[in-house]
Design a protein around this nucleic acid. Structure first.
Lengths: 208, 208
DNA sequence: CAAAATATTGACCATTTGGTCAGGATCAGG
DNA sequence: CCTGATCCTGACCAAATGGTCAATATTTTG
C-alpha cells in the first residue's frame, strides 16, 4: 500500500516542483474545474503527457498540493502558546496570518476555492485535525479568559474572526484594491486596523 | 441596442425564474466552470435546449444572475444613514449583513466565487458603483469620527471587516460547521460576538 | 561506453460540453 | 376552433479535455 519512498532523481524533483508551482498558480486563479492540464503543463514548461507522467491525474496534482500546504497553513495556529502575554499572543497570531495572506495569497485562494465549493476533499481534515487543533486552542483561550487576562469572548468565533479578517485581504484582493484605488497599501493599513481592533476587543473589562 | 421590453408571458416568467434559481444553486455550489448547462436544466426541470431558448448562453445566465442580485447585495450599505446613533447604525449594518449571510448564503458564495477568481465580469462595478458607494459611506463615517461620536478607525477597513466577518459564515460555512460540530448555531453566536466586537471597537476613547 | 532505467512526446481516444436547428407541440387571441 | 405566435425537443455538431500508449530520446549506472 505504501509507495516506495525511493529516492527521487534530480529531474523528478525539479519537474514535480515545477508542476505543483504551476498548478497552484492555475488552481488558485481559476478553480479546479476552470483549470486544464494543458494550462498547468504550459505554465510548468512541460507537455501534457509529461505532466501525467509525474502525476496520475489532475486530481492527484490537486490533492498533492493541498496536502503539501496544510502544515504551512496551520503552522501559525499551532504556534499559539500558553507562554507570554495572552493578548500579545493573539495579536501576533493575527499579524502572522495577515502576513501569510500577503505573502501566500495563492495558497489562501486555493483553500478558499476548496472550502467555498463544499470542501469534499478537505472534509475529513476540517472535522478532524483542524477541529481538534481549534478545540485545543479554544481551551487555552478560555483559560486566559477565566484568569481575567483577556476579555470574555467566544474563543471559536474569535479564531473565526482572525481567519475571516486576514484571509479576506488575499481572497478578495481584487475587490479591496478596486475599492481603495491604487494609492493604498492594503496590508499595511490592515495591520494597523487589526491591531487596534483586537487590542480593544481583548482588553479585560474591569467593571461588573 | 435596448431589448424590447415586450411583456413577458406567464410561461416565460416562470421558466426564466426557474432557470435563474437553479443556476444560482449550481453556480454557487460548483463555480461557473464547474457547472454545466445540463445540470442547470435538470435542476430547473427543463431540457438543455429549452434553457438555451430562454438565455442565449451559459454566460448570459451568469450575467443575468449577478446583475439581478446587485441591488439586494448593496442594499444594506446604501441604508447606512447619517441619522441616528452612529455606532447603532454600524452595528445594525453588521447585523443585517450577517442576516443576509444566513438567509442568502448562495448569493454570498456566488459573489465570493466571482471575486476570488479575478472578478473580470464584476470589475467595472467594483471599481465604479461599489467604490463610489464605499467612498461616500466612508466620508459619512469619517464625519462621525471627527465629531468624536465613534472611535478613530479607518473607515474603509471598518467596512471591509464587516464584509469579511459576516460573509465568512456563508462562504466558509462547511468549515465553520465542521469546527463547531452539530450542537451550535453559528449565526446566533456570531451575532453576539460581532455585536460585542463592534461595540468595543467603536466606543469613543476619551483620553488623549 | 553499453545496457538499463528514466524521461518525453506525438498521435490518438472517449467523453463531456456549449451550442444549433429543423420540426413538432402547445397556447393565446380572434 | 382556427391560426399565428410561442414553446419545446431529439438529433446533431465541433471543440475542448482528461487520459493512454507505443515509440523515441535522454540520463544514469555498472
Amino acid at each position: 500500500m505504501q509507495e516506495q519512498p525511493r529516492r527521487q532523481s534530480r529531474i523528478q524533483r525539479k519537474n514535480r516542483e515545477a508542476i505543483l508551482t504551476a498548478a497552484l498558480r492555475e488552481f488558485s486563479a481559476r478553480g479546479f474545474s476552470g483549470t486544464t492540464i494543458d494550462q498547468i503543463a504550459e505554465t510548468a514548461g512541460l507537455s501534457k503527457p509529461n505532466v501525467l507522467y509525474y502525476f496520475q491525474s489532475k486530481d492527484a496534482i490537486h490533492t498533492a498540493l493541498l496536502r503539501g500546504m496544510l502544515d504551512l497553513w496551520l503552522g501559525p495556529l499551532r504556534d499559539l502558546r500558553a507562554e507570554g502575554d495572552p493578548a500579545d499572543q493573539i495579536l501576533a497570531y493575527a499579524r502572522r496570518k495577515l502576513e501569510m495572506s500577503r505573502d501566500y495569497p495563492q495558497e489562501s485562494r486555493l483553500f478558499a476555492n476548496e472550502v467555498l465549493q463544499g470542501a469534499e476533499r478537505l472534509a475529513p481534515i476540517l472535522g478532524g485535525e483542524l477541529r481538534e487543533l481549534v478545540d485545543q486552542k479554544s481551551a487555552l483561550i478560555s483559560g486566559w479568559i477565566a484568569q481575567g487576562k483577556i476579555a470574555q469572548v467566544d474563543p471559536h468565533h474569535l479564531l473565526f474572526s482572525i481567519w475571516a479578517l486576514t484571509q479576506h485581504y488575499a481572497d478578495f484582493e481584487v475587490q479591496v484594491r478596486a475599492v481603495l484605488g491604487p494609492d493604498h497599501d492594503p496590508y499595511a493599513e490592515a495591520q494597523v486596523f487589526l491591531d487596534l481592533l483586537y487590542r480593544r476587543l481583548l482588553k479585560p473589562q474591569l467593571r461588573e
